[in-house]
Design a protein around this nucleic acid. Structure first.
Length: 795
DNA sequence: GCACGATTTATACCA
DNA sequence: ACTGGTATAAATCGTGCG
């Protein structure tokens, strides 16, 4: 009988000598179910170097068949490879693990050009071939309920016999989410699982219930019960999704190590003996459940510079920092050991888990849409990079187009020319419109049919091919290539989603879901150019990426010429944007660009006033709403001290909104005075910088590297990707020798001259220098009133 | 051997 | 581990000096 279900995950098991696909889902009665398919078999393709070799190869491949996993079928089929139809050999076997062995044997055979699609994981292969995507509703034409395997902790089990049809329902069933957060005893700095017990596990579920598991009693093994209780809680609540914050890199690895040491079974999965294990893209996989590390999604929010849970929760409006308990990591054991403070530590853990749950409510809808679009299960989609997400989408598209999926190959890095950035006209400009080409690169790829399969090596006339300026590369106009077809589908889907959204009330659940979906579609489309130029991509094509930027340069230059011809003054531009005088000629300009270039340009925003120094990629603008936009300057960078960023922001505001130079000078004077007189808190002096490689690979002793080394000496742990917060203390010698982790420094030891000369003054001067303000004026208070008006008079 | 400008290394931003 | 273009700081190199 037919069955409708929401699929959230997929796995497989080998039963006897038969691979079984397990689809984890929710049925229409909101029961957790497993659909078992025993009929699917792994396969791959062999590309012959010469078509005349095919029949010989078929015979040879058949003879490779071994008992452990017989080759059950070898057939010649037609597939396209980079758009070109060809005869290839499809080899089917039984046990997924043997694909690799056969691949290696066949790869070395005479007359074999390549082996393709032998590196696609079996469960992904199944979903691609069946058109299944996770986090989506399907109907299977025939599924029979069978006796449930005792090892599966679900309500029902079915066996699949029919075909799948996607259902046009975007709303997921009620998924049970469980947030968790562990606290670990760490008297000597960074905790070590071989020594330091888990002292608290805080949990919060979809119903809003909070549970705290505390270690009771002393002794090094006291947390065995903590982990036991944690496991029981999970099995009893039975969540579909388990969320944590940095749980892939901390909580789960720690619990795994710790439970191994204590001999406790971390059996949290939905199958018997189902324990978490490290899987693809570095995520931790739990059988039958979706383990999602929300940190992965937070990493992509570039506005948040310091990604600690409290800061992120505040930024997203989940929990205010001044309304929660905050305990620095190096003091956790102190709070635990002090009977008067332990309660605070517990409240801290609860605040953390509440924040984590809040993060899940904010971020899972997007993650779910990304999962359903890319086909990557929800627990993988966050940890997969942008490139891999798009690649999975492309692999599915390739299957639908009967295109073979290229292998991942190691290639040398090949740089190529990028976009144009105009020299800004420095100074203050009033009434400036910022015009943007909409999705410039994706639209160029579509318009000029750019891709590896449309590239013409030999002669090709201009009526058959697009000839790329500067490069002379030629791309055939017809038929549409792989990238063009995919991009058009993506953009068409996005248009469709946005169309449906218009008919929905803005606050509705459906509206929200579709909004996340259209965002995910946009992200995928916008990643396509970068993906094509990524040496790690299966569909890497340097000449294509090169052509896109060349066409981009041509497009923006032509637009500039058109603007000039209309008498529109261009102030600045970068890649796909132009800053021009805001006047009625703009309408004509937009029309002309559309007519001559066939690409859409539109007014993105209007500045009442905008200011440029001589630097590219940096400006401040006063919007029509009276807000000050700061772009590129120190104030928006995460690696400047808060105090310097505040000063610059204030200066920017004073100059743009109030037009007062003297007031700006005065406020800098005051901040410097405050700093000199010790009225600035330490946390406004911290400089945060990322450690981008192992410490011993650094060629210079940069301040943040020195600080990181000192942090390790203090018992801390530093990993690649960590942000080190350091301050500069008084003394002599290079700055790096005076950079210390902020936790180890008292405010009296701060080198205020460093902060004045290397942080506050440069940040302020960056803007004020143009108005003739000197370092001396900023450092010594004086009277006098100067406005922008006075300044322009003098000039 | 030192001072100082030039170059290199490193980070984070813009699009 | 999606791209190239850009600004900037701090460390380090290299050179002239005499």
């Amino acid at each position: 009988m037919p069955l409708r279900f929401y699929i959230y995950d997929i796995s497989y098991e080998v039963v006897g000598r038969e691979p079984h696909i397990l689809l984890w889902g929710v049925n229409e009665d909101n029961e957790r179910v497993v659909l078992r398919d025993r009929t699917f078999r792994p396969y791959f393709y062999v590309i012959p170097s010469n078509e005349s070799e095919v029949s010989r190869l078929v015979g040879e491949i058949k003879r490779l068949s071994s008992v452990k996993s017989p080759i059950t079928n070898v057939e010649v089929v037609t597939r396209k490879f980079f758009g070109k139809p060809m005869k290839v050999i499809k080899v089917v076997t039984v046990i997924p693990e043997y694909v690799r062995e056969y691949r290696e044997m066949i790869r070395g055979m005479d007359g074999v050009a390549d082996v393709l699609e032998a590196d696609i994981r079996f469960s992904m292969r199944y979903m691609i071939d069946k058109g299944l995507t996770p986090c989506s509703w399907f109907e299977v034409s025939n599924a029979e309920e069978v006796r449930k395997s005792p090892s599966l902790r679900v309500s029902r089990e079915y066996e699949v016999f029919g075909e799948f049809t996607p259902l046009q329902i975007h709303k997921p069933p009620e998924m049970k989410v469980l947030a968790f957060d562990i606290e670990v005893y760490n008297p000597r700095g960074a905790p070590r699982p071989d020594r330091d017990p888990v002292i608290i596990i805080a949990l919060m579920n979809s119903e809003g219930e909070v549970k705290v598991i505390e270690k009771v009693g002393e002794g090094p093994r006291g947390d065995a019960r903590v982990i036991d209780e944690f496991v029981s809680y999970i099995q009893q609540y039975d969540p579909d999704i388990i969320v944590g914050y940095n749980s892939n890199k901390f909580d789960w690895p720690y619990l795994l190590e710790r439970s191994k040491l204590l001999g406790v079974r971390l059996e949290v999965g939905r199958v018997k003996d189902g324990i978490p294990r490290t899987s693809v893209y570095g995520h931790i996989s739990i059988p039958g459940r979706l383990n999602v590390d929300l940190y992965d999604f937070v990493e992509e929010i570039s506005e948040i510079k310091i990604k600690s849970l409290d800061v992120v929760a505040e930024y997203l409006g989940i929990m205010r920092r001044d309304e929660r308990v905050l305990i620095p990591w190096y003091e956790i054991s102190k709070y635990w050991d002090d009977p008067n403070k332990r309660e605070l530590l517990i409240r801290y853990a609860v605040d953390d888990v509440k924040s984590t749950k809040g993060l899940a409510d904010k971020l899972l809808p997007f993650a779910t849409q990304l999962s359903s679009l890319t086909g990557l299960p929800l627990d993988q989609v966050g940890s997969a990079s942008v490139g891999f997400r798009l690649e999975w989408y492309l692999m599915r598209a390739a299957y639908k187009f009967n295109e073979l999926i290229p292998n991942r190959v190691e290639r040398p890095y090949e740089p190529y020319k990028g976009a144009i950035v105009l020299e800004p006209i420095r100074g203050i400009h009033d009434n400036i419109a910022v015009l943007d080409f909409t999705s410039m690169y994706p639209n160029i790829m579509i318009k000029y049919n750019i891709g590896p399969d449309t590239f013409v090596e030999g002669e090709c006339s201009e009526d058959q091919c697009y000839v790329i300026p500067e490069l002379g590369y030629r791309f055939r106009k017809e038929p549409p290539g792989f990238y063009k077809a995919v991009l058009e589908t993506l953009l068409e889907m996005r248009r469709g989603v946005r169309e449906v959204m218009k008919k929905l009330p803005q606050g509705s659940v459906e509206y929200r879901i579709l909004d996340e979906r259209q965002k995910a579609l946009k992200i995928l489309a916008n990643a396509s150019y970068g993906y094509m130029g990524w040496v790690g991509a299966r569909w890497y094509f340097r000449q294509g990426a090169e052509a896109v930027t060349a066409l981009g340069r041509k497009t923006i230059s032509t637009a500039i010429d058109l603007a000039k011809k209309l008498g529109l003054k261009v102030i600045y531009g970068d890649t796909d944007s132009l800053f021009v005088e805001y006047n009625p000629k703009i309408d004509e300009f937009i029309r002309l660009v559309m007519e001559k270039l066939g690409l859409e340009i539109k007014v993105d925003k209007v500045y009442r006033r905008v200011f440029f120094t001589e630097a590219k990629k940096r400006y401040i603008g006063l919007t029509t709403d009276g807000l000050v936009d700061i772009v590129g300057f120190e104030a928006v960078r995460g690696d400047w001290a808060e105090i310097a960023k505040e000063v610059q922001e204030l200066v920017a505001h004073t100059i743009l909104a109030e037009g007062s130079i003297s007031k700006a000078i005065e406020l800098v004077n005051n901040v410097i005075k405050d700093l000199r007189e010790g009225r600035v808190a330490l946390d406004r002096l911290i400089i945060w910088k990322t450690i981008t490689k192992p410490l011993d690979e650094y060629e210079v002793s940069a301040p943040h590297v020195t600080a990181a080394r000192r942090l390790i000496e203090l018992g801390g742990r530093v990993e690649v990707g960590d942000k080190i917060g350091y301050v500069i203390v008084k003394g002599s010698g290079p700055i790096s020798s005076r950079a210390y982790p902020y936790i180890a420094v008292k405010v009296e030891d701060i080198d205020s001259d460093y902060y004045i000369d290397h942080q506050i003054v440069p940040a302020a001067l960056r803007i004020l220098e143009y108005f003739g303000v000197t370092e001396k004026q900023l450092k010594t208070a004086s009277k006098g009133v100067r406005t922008l008006f006075d300044f322009s008079k003098k000039r």
